[in-house]
Amino acid sequence: MVEPYLRLLVAQVRGQTQYRASFVVELVFSTLMTALDVVTVFVIFSVNDRLGGFGGTEVLMIVGIAAFGFPAADLVVGNVERLRVYVRTGLLDAVLVRPLSALGQLVAMDFSVRRAGRVVQGTALYVVALVVAPVVWSPGAVVLVVLAPLSATVFFGAIFVVGATVAFWWIESGEIANAFTYGGRDFTSYPMTVFSGLFRRVFAYGLGFAFVAYLPALALLGRSDPIGAPDWLRWCSPLVALFAAGVAALFWRTGIRHYRSTGS
């Protein structure tokens, strides 16, 4: 069952490494790009050494989880955002007539090798954060150290899929999805105490972005949420990620049923 996807994947990898110079530049710079997201956080820290009531190593913990989760999700399902191109050009018809999962094909067909570098870098950053941050170790914390970045990956993956399905109803919707994918990545790299008002309520708790990195980081650091989320909520990221994945699956199914070919 896996074989056809694997073939699509290998074909992609070969295709993308054809123009070798361009590929190397892409790989290097896509890796540097992750570094630069983190640089922004550090530049802001250079102004004063606390951010929203958190110290440098504590924020590094938050950044570390987000810096792994986003690129990992981007590597695995990020290319689903090309769905709108398939819908607009009618190419999705070709995808749907094949006896394979449409989502699986889209993921394999646009697999982007250059994104792997960022995952390696995100992993390194997370490990550094675990070493330098004042983690309060406990059996629960050990489990969370593994589950938190994976939950972040699943959560961002769900966001990518939901964002892409908007194209079924609204073809030129691309940038809306960016607000939640790339916007979500930036948002989750900061302590939620930085934000306030309706904006924080909607993004952090309504849409669940606080569960990506902020709340699990609090649990690992043994800190309570200064803005009042109960302590047990800090351990709930895996459940929230599973819930998000369920919602994404629902969106995808509804979207696929709703799809009408462009007819061209």
């Binding site: 802001i44 102004v47 004063n48 609204w170 809306i176 960016n178 930036d186 930085v194 934000f195 306030s196």
Partner: peptide, 29 residues
Amino acid sequence: RQATIAGAFTNTMFGFMRCYIMLSVVDVT
């Protein structure tokens, strides 16, 4: 038109985020 609305929405979302982040820096110093 759709792309214009989508883009304006995204710029606005990032505006809130960046503004809160920058203001949290100013609030200390």
